[in-house]
């Protein structure tokens, strides 16, 4: 059993151990599903694992954890992702 005097920096994988990091965002990526070809490059590149794959094979952004880094927007080859200022709608 774990002894009180043995203190280790061990961490287990959990969702959002730092809280809802989506609150850190100033711009947000928005997927246009009419243009999306399900290549999943956005899912592959997302450094925060904030893009999930839906049952129908399309990617979906988890805005609770997306920090708005814009990498998916940059990587999308068919320009299906736009990068929108928080508080504004897709133009």
């Amino acid at each position: 059993m774990v002894k009180d005097h043995i203190i280790l920096p061990v961490s287990k994988p959990t969702e959002g151990s730092m809280g809802k990091t989506g609150l850190w965002r100033t711009f947000r990526p928005v997927i246009n599903y009419d243009k999306c070809v399900k290549c999943l490059l956005c899912w592959f590149y997302c450094p925060d694992i904030a893009i999930k794959i839906r049952d129908d094979g399309y990617p979906e952004i988890d805005y609770c954890y997306c920090k708005g880094c814009g990498i998916c927007w940059h990587e999308c080859k068919v320009k299906a992702i736009s990068f929108v200022r928080e508080g504004e709608e897709v133009g």
Binding site: V10, S11, K12, P13
Partner: peptide, 8 residues
């Protein structure tokens, strides 16, 4: 799965 040695 665990990691040991993350930033502290």
């Amino acid at each position: 799965p665990v990691t040991n040695g993350n930033i502290v």
